[in-house]
Structure formats: structure tokens, C-alpha cells
Design a protein around this nucleic acid. Structure first.
Lengths: 165, 165
DNA sequence: ACATTTTTGTAGCGTATGCTACGTTTTTTA
DNA sequence: TAAAAAACGTAGCATACGCTACAAAAATGT
């Protein structure tokens, strides 16, 4: 047992709790102490299981990114779709009541990524590229070159919709 | 002289300096002391001319918003344009070398607005609505109903372009 | 049973933040 | 010119942040 089973399990629990806290509260009130309280431990323990806060946040963002990707994958019926079909299906999914909190966090990540700081920039760039590939996979063969366009339009629509009452 | 000419002039100078600092450095390293240094004064003086830091930031954001709006207005040749023409012209303008820094700040504002905190949410919502109206004014009469769509696509394109290598 | 390692609690350090107390200089007004 | 107001400098407060020192408890291995 090289990475120690029990420790690794505890790490995952903390990552899950941190991800939930971030989705619920955003980055504003997500200091070590607040996250620790949401996880039911002390901030001291976070530093025990993770070298830095950034390590924990990066892990939590990775989990959140995976959730977004999974949600997008579920939202589009199958392959061989038209751009408009994909766009509408994804927009409905990402603006649904359950997805709104995570989408708000997503655009918070975007904002933090804009000056190149880690782990936000890497998370944002990776998830964008991954999303583009997902969309491309769902598009009809003769429309695959429009994946980037669909992605951009989707992001813009969701962003505007979340901000303009 | 009700609001005191000299004081008001000084306030405007500070607002301009603060806006330039925000565009150059983003919100990350924009504490009172850093902004004050960019303005060539002490943080004490900022509190003398403004009740709170938020007051100064709100004024700076208003100035920045006006700059963005003016840039968008200049970018589109005239009225009676097609959605694609407007979209392409605005995308080129907002992604130009000079506009990139301000656009990065814009998406930082978006991120901060996502949890409803002021003055970011108000600034973001107002500028989005204003942009939609500007676009609508440039569109051909039979295409004006597509202003929101053009705006969303524009925002998405710029955002993706700024983040994917 | 003992020694060693793993896990946890308490307290606090160093730094940065927005903001203020207090005093001094400069300008304005009478 | 004296008094009042405006403009500014120095120093520091209170709070929050990420993180650490130190030691005690709990688990583990021999």
C-alpha cells in the first residue's frame, strides 16, 4: 500500500467536501477555515492531507470539471446531431436549476484564469478544450468543423443569461 | 462651487489612475496601497477622497465600461449591418492587442459578478444591456431581434479565444 | 509491553487587507 | 493677520489569510 489506503480515502472525502463548498459559496468565502468547517475538520488537517491550499483547490476543480463534462455528455441525446440541436440541448442543461451554481463557479474560474494564475488557467483551458472535443464528437461528420463555434456560442449564451436578469 | 472644483478634479485623476491600474494588473494585486502607488499618492489620500475602496472601484469600472462601449461603437462601420458583419468587426476589435487587457478585466468582472456582489454585478449587467442596445442600433431593421444572439456569440468567442492557447 | 509512527488539537506567526486616529501643513475666509 | 477649514503624512488598528510549531493522543508494529 504505497499511497496508504486510509489516507487516500480521507483525501478524497476532503476534496469532495471542498468541491461542494466551492460550488455552493464560490471563491469569495472559501478560505481554509471555511472549507475545513464544511468538511467537518480543522484547517490544520487540510494542511496535513495537502501540501498547500492550491493543491486541494486544484483537486476540487478537477472533480468539478469532470462533473461538468459528464453533465454535458448526458445532455446531448446521441451523436450525429446538428449544431443547433446540440446548442439548445446544452444551453438547457447548463442553465437548469441544478446546474446554475456550478456554472457560476465556472465563470468565476474563467475570471481568475484571465491573468494566467494557476490552477485556474489550466483548469479553464483544459475544460474548454475537452468540451470542444465532446461537442465535435456529437456533431454530424460534415459539421465537425463548427465545434469551436458551437462552444463559444454556448458559453456566451449561458454567461449572458446568468447575468441579465 | 458646490462639490469643490479642485477636489472633484483630483477625484477624477485618481479614478483615471485606478482604472489604468486595474486594466494593467487585474483585481489580484489591486489593494488600496498598490492602486495608491499607481496614482502617485498614499492609500490615506484615497480614503480622503473616497468613502470606501468600493466607491473608487465602482467609479473606475464605470469609466472602463464607457471605454469599452466607445470602442465597440467605433469598431462597427455604421448602421444597417448584418449580424455576421457586426460580429466579425467587434471580435477583431475586442481581441486586438490594445483591447486584450481590458477584455481580460471584463471577464474578471463577470466572474466577480456571478455571486451578486457589488459593484461588479451592476457594472456587468449594465454594460451587457448597453452593448446589446448598441448592437441592435447597428443591425438592419429586419435583424434587430438578433441583437442578444450576436452579443452572446461575441462574448463567447472572445472568452474562448483569450483562454485557449 | 514498549517504541515508533500516524493522526489530531491548540495556539500563534507573518503578512496583507481595508480603514482610522492623530497630528501637521497648506489654503481659504473673515 | 488670525481663525477656520481643507489637504496631507505617519503610524497603526482589527481582521483575515495561508501556514507552522509544538505537543498530545491514537494507532501500529515488534
Amino acid at each position: 500500500m504505497v499511497p496508504l489506503e486510509k489516507t487516500e480515502k480521507r483525501r478524497q472525502e476532503i476534496i469532495t467536501a471542498a468541491a461542494a463548498h466551492l460550488v455552493a459559496h464560490g471563491f469569495q468565502n472559501s478560505g481554509l477555515r471555511a472549507i475545513a468547517q464544511s468538511a467537518g475538520i480543522s484547517d490544520r488537517m487540510i494542511m496535513y492531507y495537502f501540501d498547500t491550499k492550491e493543491d486541494l483547490v486544484a483537486a476540487a476543480l478537477e472533480m468539478i470539471g469532470a462533473n461538468i463534462a459528464a453533465g454535458m455528455d448526458d445532455a446531448v441525446p446521441q451523436g450525429n446531431a446538428t449544431p443547433r440541436q446540440i446548442l439548445d440541448a446544452l444551453q438547457d442543461a447548463l442553465l437548469s436549476e441544478e446546474a446554475q451554481a456550478i456554472m457560476r463557479l465556472w465563470f468565476e474560474i474563467i475570471g481568475l484564469a484571465m491573468r494566467g494564475q494557476q490552477p485556474y488557467e489550466q483548469t479553464a483551458a483544459r475544460l474548454l478544450q475537452q468540451s470542444e472535443e465532446q461537442i465535435r464528437a456529437k456533431l454530424r461528420a460534415d459539421q465537425k468543423h463548427r465545434a469551436r463555434e458551437v462552444l463559444a456560442t454556448l458559453e456566451g449564451r449561458v454567461m449572458v443569461e446568468l447575468l441579465v436578469e
